[in-house]
Amino acid sequence: MRGEKSDPPAKVPTAAVTYEVTGEGRVDITYQGASEKGTGESVTRAELPWRKEIRVPLGRTPVVSVVLGPDGGHAKCALAVKGRHVQSATAEGAYGRTSCTGVLPAPEPSAD
């Protein structure tokens, strides 16, 4: 209705997530961003080492994926949630791929 005030949007609880990719050369990286809708973000031909610290909404799956180029190489992804190492994995060779995934608990229901 016109002229009525609406409640501000509810703030979604988050957790600190660190994505890290080490190795040699440049790689394409895709990762779960901080958006509440769970959209991914990409970095093309990222120079290594690469690191990103963000806050991911609870209930979303933090993930970082790495793709090597045609010249191959070696890259390792690592994922930490709230400062604790969760997973690491390695990609090698031409167009090698790998990903690291973590789990965040679902947000607690609000007591409205």
Score class of each variant (00 low, 15 high):
95 Y>N: 15
61 T>Y: 13
5 K>G: 06
27 V>A: 07
97 R>P: 01
36 E>Y: 01
97 R>V: 04
60 R>M: 07
103 V>Q: 14
74 H>P: 01
55 R>G: 06
65 S>W: 03
10 A>D: 06
51 R>G: 05
88 S>M: 07
72 G>W: 05
67 V>A: 14
87 Q>R: 15
16 A>S: 12
50 W>P: 00
29 I>T: 09
49 P>N: 04
45 R>L: 12
76 K>M: 13
56 V>D: 05
6 S>R: 14
35 S>I: 01
8 P>D: 14
15 A>V: 05
27 V>T: 11
75 A>Q: 05
36 E>F: 00
90 T>A: 12
64 V>M: 05
75 A>S: 10
68 L>A: 08
74 H>R: 15
101 T>V: 15
70 P>L: 12
9 P>T: 05
42 S>H: 11
30 T>R: 15
61 T>R: 14
75 A>T: 07
66 V>H: 05
58 L>A: 03
70 P>Y: 00
75 A>H: 04
20 E>M: 10
5 K>A: 14
94 A>K: 05
37 K>M: 13
103 V>G: 07
82 K>N: 15
57 P>F: 01
55 R>L: 02
66 V>Y: 02
84 R>M: 00
97 R>F: 06
30 T>V: 15
93 G>W: 04
16 A>W: 10
89 A>I: 01
55 R>D: 09
110 S>M: 00
77 C>P: 01
88 S>Q: 15
92 E>N: 08
48 L>T: 02
43 V>I: 06
59 G>C: 10
58 L>W: 04
23 G>K: 03
107 P>G: 00
109 P>H: 03
62 P>E: 14
13 P>V: 08
